[in-house]
């Protein structure tokens, strides 16, 4: 039951984009088409889950026992960069056309602060392994939901008469704000 609460909380209530406002760069940059947004969301979900697991292992088996907590941020940065490189190499090896099509999204994940945020928040909350993994999956799916919803709205917005001054990031940020307010409606789900 607690795992379900963590999952729903990470995906809807404490959504990384709409609650923490993390990962705004890819959220605004790759949310023009639903297909691209979905690809980005899937890749981020996978990297988030993997990062959560590896950073948990490093934190609880190396940093805390040896009193190296102050190296958390540095080690998490290294973990994220290495994992993204690993995923990039893996995709390039198994399917060059997929790698070719995904080219831009993978390097963008390295600089996605939502992933760093996930590792730090999971460490602060002192989750166990199962909780950390569920937190990572929930946060990743929450990011995917947010970016795909945004892409759907922005595709429709192409047909709307938006004032010249608000076109582009302006209207996108206004929509993000309204969506964040809408997501606040989920806050009563878990007590």
């Amino acid at each position: 039951m607690e795992l379900a609460a963590i999952f729903i909380s990470a995906m809807l209530i404490n959504n990384f984009v709409f609650y923490y406002f993390l990962g705004i760069c890819p959220f605004l940059g790759v949310s023009k088409k639903i297909d691209s947004a979905f690809s980005m969301g899937l890749a981020v979900t996978f990297v988030m889950t993997l990062t959560a697991v590896v950073s948990w292992a490093i934190n609880y088996w190396i940093l805390i026992p040896y009193g190296l907590d102050y190296l958390q941020i540095v080690s998490f940065i290294l973990v994220i960069a290495s994992l993204v490189q690993l995923v990039e190499m893996f995709i390039r090896k198994i399917s060059p056309p997929l790698y070719q099509a995904m080219g831009i999204y993978l390097p963008l994940i390295t600089t996605n602060c939502a992933i760093m945020g996930l590792a730090i928040i999971a460490a602060r909350k002192e989750y166990g392994l199962a909780e950390t993994v569920i937190f990572g999956v929930g946060a990743g799916l929450g990011f995917t939901l947010a970016i795909v919803l945004m892409a759907g709205i922005r595709e429709q917005l192409e047909l709307a008469d938006v004032p010249e001054a608000l076109k582009g990031p302006g209207i996108a940020l206004i929509i993000a704000g309204i969506m964040a307010l809408a997501f606040m409606g989920f806050s009563g789900m878990i007590k």
Binding site: S39, L42, F46, I91, I94, L98, V137
Partner: peptide, 13 residues
């Protein structure tokens, strides 16, 4: 392309 991505990341997850 989307199906391949779902297969790749979905099965790994």
């Amino acid at each position: 392309y989307n199906m391949a991505l779902i297969l790749l990341f979905g099965s790994l997850l």
